[in-house]
Design a binder for these strands. Structure first.
Length: 268
DNA sequence: AATTACGACAACCGCCTCTCA
DNA sequence: TTGAGAGGCGGTTGTCGTAAT
């Protein structure tokens, strides 16, 4: 029996995405958000990619309002706290971190936080003396470490007004406050006009960005135009000529940095 | 200067769940 | 009710840049 692959791996391109592919995918998703599904998108958009790959690229990298770059201490603490609470439910954890994807959180965990988590879990090689037992007594960085993780039984004992739950909620509220104070400019793909709560790809489950889906039923997904920007039909050769290029491939290759606007639309 | 080790992150893989005919 | 297709998700791998040797 076995499961048939979603696409022929031999016939589709794999590996890193090019700028041109990004631009085509972004333009297509923005323009035809309600016109189909991910499996048919590559064919319609003229991309030689697997539909799943397109979806992943959009969700993890091209989507508006995504935040790339370093995680803050508050985010680290929240991730560690949530991991201790629910485990490796990266999509759930990412939903608590506006602008972060489950892949981002997962990568961050595997490269950094996992070690901190293991260090925190590891038993001390020597029994702690009363003098060194107090928090942050031996290491200045200890103060940034999360509290020791709790197992499920322990969690069950603190469900009502438990400190862990409170701490998690406090951290989240603190994080939200910090994020809202930050100007939205500066990040390459941060949206200047779309708020985090109105992320167009946010699913109905209120899970936030990580549960985003390009759903044919999602009528609120991405407006066709935004503000005074122009939306370009990538398949219209006349449009390409209007911008002084023989084709959009040429156009995209020559001016990618201007093409990808703050909302991922094709701006000019 | 060359090589190795490591960190960061993008992308892929395969299984599971959900939806719909 | 059921089976196929699509989406969602967690685990894993690949690649590239940089620090260390």
């Amino acid at each position: 029996m076995g499961r048939s692959p979603c696409c022929d791996r031999r016939s589709v391109k794999r590996g890193a995405w090019s700028r041109e592919e990004d631009a085509i995918l972004t333009g297509f998703v923005q323009r035809f958000a309600n016109a189909g599904n991910w499996m048919t998108l590559p064919h319609k958009a003229g991309l030689n990619r697997c539909g799943k790959s397109c979806r992943l690229r959009w969700l993890n990298y091209l989507r508006p309002a995504l935040r790339h770059g370093q995680f803050t201490d508050e985010e680290d603490s929240l991730i560690l706290s949530l991991y201790a609470d629910i485990g490796s439910k990266w999509s759930v954890i990412a939903a608590k971190l506006p602008g972060r994807t489950d892949n981002d959180v997962k990568n961050h965990w595997n490269t950094k936080l996992k070690k901190r988590h293991l260090l925190a879990m590891a038993p001390s090689p020597t029994p702690p003396t009363p003098a060194t037992d107090s928090p942050s007594a031996s290491d200045a960085d200890e103060s940034s470490l999360p509290p020791p993780p709790l197992d499920e039984e322990a969690l069950a004992t603190v469900d009502d007004g438990g400190e862990l739950k409170h701490r998690s909620e406090e951290l989240y509220a603190e994080l939200m406050g910090l994020i809202q104070q930050q100007p939205m400019t500066g990040d390459v793909r941060s949206s200047s006009s779309s708020s985090l709560s109105s992320t167009p790809t946010a699913g109905a489950s209120s899970a936030g960005v990580s549960s985003a889906a390009w759903s044919a039923d999602d009528e609120e997904f991405l407006p066709e135009s935004s503000g005074s920007s122009m939306v370009v039909d990538l398949h219209d050769p006349c449009a390409a000529h209007a911008f002084g290029a023989t084709s959009f491939q040429d156009l995209l290759a020559s001016s990618y940095d201007e093409i990808i606007g703050t909302e991922g639309l094709l701006y000019y």
